[in-house]
Simulated assay, not measured.
Amino acid sequence: MHKDDDEAFADNYAERDQAKALREQARAGGLRFEAYLPGELADWLLQRVEGGMFVDPSEAVFAIVKNFIEMEPHRDLRDELLRRILDASLKSGLEDVEAGRTRPADEVFDELRRKMAEPRPEPARWAKIAR
């Protein structure tokens, strides 16, 4: 987190207090937590495990967090990457508009409401394989 981002996260007081309370124990013994990935991210991660890039999802989380930490001092690079991601998204959206692939907002919101009302499938759970 960047020093200027502090107010952006001002509503998660309980989580911040829990982090403070766990820091010493985590420094000594590490930290275990449960993570949820939506389908698209879960699929990306499992493809990498299947392909041998990672041994399991926890190794992927470790590598990704380590990468994020290493990028932290290079905020200019992170900002440039974010700018490129947003530019690509905007370009894609403009191409949809130019090609006439747009829908009225009320139609989009009706579809979102229907999807939100549908029962959600139970998420898959990764089981650590003892070796």
Rank of each mutant, 00 (worst) to 15 (best):
D87P: 02
A105C: 03
V97P: 06
R125A: 07
R84F: 05
P57A: 09
A99R: 12
D106A: 14
R101H: 15
P119H: 03
G100W: 10
G51E: 08
D87G: 09
P73A: 02
P73E: 00
P57N: 11
G93V: 00
V55L: 10
E50M: 06
R83H: 12
N67W: 08
E107N: 03
P123V: 01
E118K: 15
D87V: 08
M53E: 15
E107P: 00
R113T: 05
D110T: 12
N67G: 11
L81R: 07
M53C: 09
E59V: 11
L90N: 13
R114M: 04
D110I: 01
P121V: 05
E122I: 04
I85W: 07
E80G: 09
N67S: 14
A124Q: 08
V55R: 14
P119S: 11
D79N: 09
R48D: 06
P119E: 14
D76S: 07
R84S: 13
E72H: 09
R125Y: 06
I64T: 13
G52I: 05
G100E: 08
E50N: 11
M116Y: 11
A60I: 10
V108K: 11
P57H: 09
M71P: 00
R120F: 06
D87N: 12
P123C: 03
F109S: 06
G52N: 03
V97Y: 13
K66Y: 08
D110G: 04
P121L: 06
A60Q: 06
R78L: 01
P73H: 00
D96K: 13
K115W: 02
R125P: 00
M71T: 05
V65H: 05
R103Y: 07
P121A: 10
P73T: 05
F68I: 03
F54R: 13
G100Q: 11
L94W: 14
L86N: 15
R101I: 01
A60H: 09
D87T: 09
G51P: 05
E80I: 03
I64L: 15
P121D: 10
F54L: 06
F54V: 05
